[in-house]
Amino acid sequence: MDELVVSTVVYRPQHEVYDFLIRFPRYAKYSDHLREVLTRPDSERSNTRYGLKFAWWKLTYTVESEVTDTDRPHTIDWRTIRNLSARGRWRLRKIEDDSFPVTAPDTANAATRVTFEAAYDPDSANRGNINLPRFVSFGWVIDRLEPAIRKEAKETVQRVVTDLEGRSRPVELTVEHHSG
Rank of each mutant, 00 (worst) to 15 (best):
R93T: 04
N109W: 09
V63L: 12
E172R: 11
D106M: 03
D2V: 07
R35L: 10
V6G: 12
A55C: 09
R49N: 02
D69T: 01
V114I: 09
R12N: 06
D71R: 07
D42W: 03
L164A: 08
E152K: 06
D69N: 14
K154E: 15
A108T: 10
D98Q: 14
T62M: 09
R89F: 11
L145T: 05
K58D: 12
T107M: 02
A28H: 15
F138P: 05
T48N: 01
K53I: 07
D19P: 00
F24Y: 13
K151A: 14
L92K: 08
F116T: 14
A55L: 05
K151M: 09
T174Q: 14
A118Y: 08
T107Y: 02
N126K: 07
A119D: 15
Q158C: 10
E64G: 01
V157W: 13
T48P: 00
T112W: 05
R159G: 13
P147L: 03
E96V: 05
A28E: 15
T115F: 04
F20C: 08
P25R: 06
T107D: 14
S99K: 13
I142K: 13
L84V: 07
I130T: 08
E66I: 01
L173V: 09
F20V: 05
D143R: 14
E96A: 14
T80C: 12
A111M: 01
N109M: 10
T174P: 00
T39S: 08
A104W: 02
R26Y: 02
V37H: 02
E172T: 09
V10N: 10
A86I: 04
L4K: 02
I149H: 04
F138D: 03
V114T: 12
T115E: 15
